[in-house]
Amino acid sequence: MPNSPEISISRRGVLAGSAASAVIAATTAGAAQRAAPATLAPLPAPAPQPMPVSLTVNGKVQRLSLDPRTTLLDALREHLHLTGTKKGCDHGQCGACTVMVEGVRINSCLSLAVMHEGDTITTIEGLGTPDKLHPMQAAFVKHDGYQCGYCTPGQICSAVAVLDEIKRGVPSHVSVSLTDHPQATNIEMRERMSGNICRCGAYSNIAEAMAEIAGENA
């Protein structure tokens, strides 16, 4: 492969590379190219066998038999058809998949379903329904705390869990003290919500929806 750019990557180049991931991606691309002989077959992986798992989702016991690679997110969306929980990135980078497991919020895309045997899970569908909205859902509607709506279930699950974290005294990065009880201030809530991206940019309104509910609970 004459003149192929990857040959010119020296160690110095690697070290000086401004974006390390660029170098890694580049060399991987190069490696794929060198490993080109299409005859070189990979080792066949054994087919994963389904595993049983039982979850309590929104108060209902669900017994599933799942490919062990199935994330909790895909178990909810693709197997239980609870599509209110969204997949924005599948990599723990956006918060769209936030659900509550045993009352604590997690990114369900970062967790395999089979890790949750016996767990109690609450999704957006478990908080309220269009006819009987959870107070946080109603506050989002009132304050227009959403636009496209795709991040919204994750925001709402996070918002409910955040207020509970504050109530339980869990400190955050912006808490003034690790021992004093944190308050549901604007900055405290914004910090804790920062794992939930809203590209539509409804943040200012979400903060108002949360403040209303935090105020009621205070």
Binding site: A22, A26, H91, R190, Y203, S204, A207
Partner: peptide, 24 residues
């Protein structure tokens, strides 16, 4: 060199989050 966008996910491509945006 290789012709692609390096930071091609939501961790590498940063967009504003709650903490970045005050009341508007």
């Amino acid at each position: 060199r290789f012709g692609f966008f390096v930071n091609h996910d939501l961790a590498g491509y940063e967009v504003p989050v709650h903490a970045d945006i005050p009341h508007q």
